[in-house]
Write a protein that binds this DNA or RNA. Structure first.
Lengths: 259, 259
DNA sequence: TTCTTTTGTTAGATTGCTCTAACAGAAATA
DNA sequence: TATTTCTGTTAGAGCAATCTAACAAAAGAA
């Protein structure tokens, strides 16, 4: 059951994602860790690693540590991003509990197309940019779910009279900041990607989505790529690409999710 | 790869859904039709039918037409509903094109948990009840996607000054109507389910979600269940359950989706 | 060094699903 | 009635993924 976009099965994608998670917290990924994390027997892991190596997604030789190839790393990150997007949609918009959302996201992630993924990422950017939408979901839909359904008892329900913010307030001191302009070492929340379609896609695939936590570990220069920590994982980023990442000003964008 | 909630694989769920679709347009479902619709060889269908029969989801004997059992019909309808919910989310909210949305929905539908499904259904009800949310998505997010991103160029963007409707307008002549009160034979759009958790769940599983097209074919009485045509499929519905289905007044609720 | 424990691999079986090729039954046509 | 066409089934193979049980290699402890 090969998943549409990279000729690789959902199971193999899961293995890649797991390896990525493990490498995020410890310096090496071993068969045993993978087996534990995925709740399969170690005997299932070995042949999976062979299949991955065959497809040139990891470097693997018997009884040795596992390393990503470039392509493998790309797929791992993208799968992870899909997972995060789906999980956040389920928790933040639909209000599903964390565990259930994880389970659902874990299986659906293999089937979300590139297109849908990009649009879901855009939706979160829009949500972050539009306090009214946020307000509607937090105070309208969530309240509804909690059983305070009297709002729905009329046919229609308008938020406008309930709005507790002055429309003119919105622009005050809330300019977004470029990632490359923040203090190295300080932690921010990504607000938006401001780039052409291709670069945008590349960034989203790598996990640069609204709400993600980012630290600029090394500013970088024209020759030297930036180093950032995205949701706890190190990544290199050429300066001209890092320029496209906009973050919320300090303390803003509270809708951070846990990784 | 047994899917969480009914101990049945995604593939078998697909077969059930396909049979349901076929029975919706022609009076019998044959092996050949199923094979064609699912783009598999007829030789794959026969063993699948055997597996379904073993699990008591269909009645099947060699070279005979295929009939649902009650349980099979239930799963088929629920799978179909999941499909519709996901597909509508992708098209109506994210603005993905129809085919892509179908493909994505087709594979994700097997993994959307009961909880997430219910909440997604609730989200559409909320969307239908809240013109501001609808407006934000149609005029804010959709415009953004079309490239008119200048709205996002500021950090925040408020819809309030752009609202083109008077908040007081909202209640005028827009009361919802009970399904059982509409003229038999006339076609309406479902707006909302107004029932306790259990009945609500039952109705949603059967496809009674906001936006679905419904025709009351036979009104029913205390002893006689109503007969309705839901998105083209006939269903029976006890009167006291049909009472919980609210529809938009005539001409309202234009966000109908094609089945 | 030798023994024990941890870790990883292999062999072999099973399950679910698919395919092609060959065959069997039923229906339509000559 | 005999023949052809359509339809459905079976046999046999293959693939991906998983398991248990047995074994092998490496690391740590005695």
């Amino acid at each position: 059951m090969s998943n549409s976009e990279n000729g690789i099965t959902g199971s193999l994608e899961d293995y890649l994602e797991t390896i990525y998670r493990i490498l995020g917290r410890s310096s090496v990924a071993r068969v045993r860790d993978i087996a534990e994390e995925m709740k399969v027997s170690p005997a299932s892991v070995t042949p999976a690693m062979k299949r991955l190596a065959e497809k040139k997604l990891i470097k693997y030789s018997k009884r040795n540590y596992i390393e990503f190839t470039e392509k493998g790393l790309f797929i791992a990150r993208r799968t992870m991003t899909r997972h995060n997007l789906l999980s956040r949609f389920l928790t933040e918009i639909l209000g599903i509990n964390k565990e259930q959302a994880e389970t659902d996201a874990c299986s659906m992630e293999h089937f979300l197309s590139e297109n849908s993924m990009e649009r879901l990422a855009a939706f979160f950017e829009f949500l972050a940019a539009c306090p009214d939408l946020q307000f509607l979901i937090d105070n309208g839909f969530s309240k509804c779910l909690e059983g305070e359904t009297e709002q729905l008892s009329r046919c229609r329900w308008s938020i406008c009279p309930l709005m507790n913010h002055d429309p003119d307030d919105n622009d005050k001191g809330l300019e977004l900041i470029r990632l490359i302009d923040i203090d190295p070492g300080s932690s921010r929340i990504i607000a938006r990607i401001n780039a052409d379609k291709q670069v945008r896609k590349q960034l989203i695939d790598s996990g640069f989505i609204q709400g993600a936590n980012i630290i600029l570990s090394r500013p970088g220069s024209n020759d030297l790529p930036c180093i950032v920590k995205l949701d706890g994982y190190d990544q290199e980023l050429p300066l001209e690409i890092a320029e496209c990442v906009l973050v919320h000003p300090e303390g803003e964008g509270k809708h951070e999710y846990e990784k």
